[in-house]
Amino acid sequence: MKLIKILKNNRGLTLIELLVSITILGIVLLSFMNFFLQSSTYTNSNQKKTVGVNVARNVLMFMEKQNFLEIRNFFNEVNTGQHSSEDDFLSLFICNDSYLTFSNSAAESEISQACPQKKNITVNGLEYEATISSEEVSSSEEIDSYIPITVKVRWTIDAREYSTTLDGKVKSEDIR
């Protein structure tokens, strides 16, 4: 009976009741907006990381198509200390719509002579820098069959650097 009286009441809402209800609604909506903002930021970050992993996979596939003996000799020299730098690695660039690798110890003049317009890999307007390194293989039998390599991809967003790595193996043409 009381419920019917409340529903038939023509008095309306006071200004204070209206302000309180709008405030409560605003607090609830702000908490939901914060959730959507965080999920959007997280999704965007994961999208960039997924692209980075795909760039690393693409670099690994490129390395698998290269001459096994040249790659093996380069990383053998690096791992045995025959190169000038112990942390020598290969950097991958785009030159004339194809990939080229250069040692990080190569002179800049040598790189610019081979590829005057070298670029990093660009996807969706974001540049990804790819480097390729190898760890030392324990036995000579293993290095005759495959080379374990690590592809590291780095990118920068708002002066903050992100990276991802991918481990793989380049197999000899004899066992492919």
Rank of each mutant, 00 (worst) to 15 (best):
Y146Q: 14
V137H: 06
L69G: 02
S105W: 00
Y99M: 08
Y42T: 15
I111G: 00
I121Y: 02
D158L: 10
G52C: 10
A130R: 08
E86P: 10
T131F: 04
D97N: 15
R72A: 06
R160G: 01
A56E: 06
I94P: 04
A114G: 11
P148R: 06
L126F: 07
S85D: 06
W155K: 13
Y99V: 01
G125S: 13
T150P: 11
L126D: 03
S85W: 05
F36C: 14
F74E: 03
T164Q: 04
E161P: 12
S133D: 11
T131G: 04
E86D: 12
V78E: 00
N54T: 05
E135H: 01
I111L: 07
N104W: 05
G125Y: 10
F89P: 03
N96R: 01
V123N: 05
I143E: 11
T50M: 13
P148G: 13
K49L: 15
T80L: 12
L100F: 08
N76E: 14
I149E: 05
S39G: 13
S84H: 11
L60K: 06
R72H: 04
Y146W: 09
Y99A: 01
V53S: 13
A114H: 01
T50F: 09
E110G: 11
D158Q: 14
L69F: 13
A130W: 04
D88R: 02
L69E: 14
N96F: 02
I143G: 02
Y128I: 00
A107T: 05
K49Y: 15
F62I: 05
L100H: 06
A107E: 05
N76F: 07
N79S: 12
F62L: 12
S112F: 09
E142Y: 03
F62M: 10
T122L: 06
E70K: 06
D167A: 07
Q82M: 06
S85L: 05
V78S: 09
T43K: 15
I71M: 13
I147G: 02
Y128C: 03
G81W: 07
Q47F: 11
T156C: 02
Y146G: 11
W155Y: 09
E141P: 05
N67W: 07
N96I: 00
F89R: 09
A106I: 09
E77M: 15
Y146K: 15
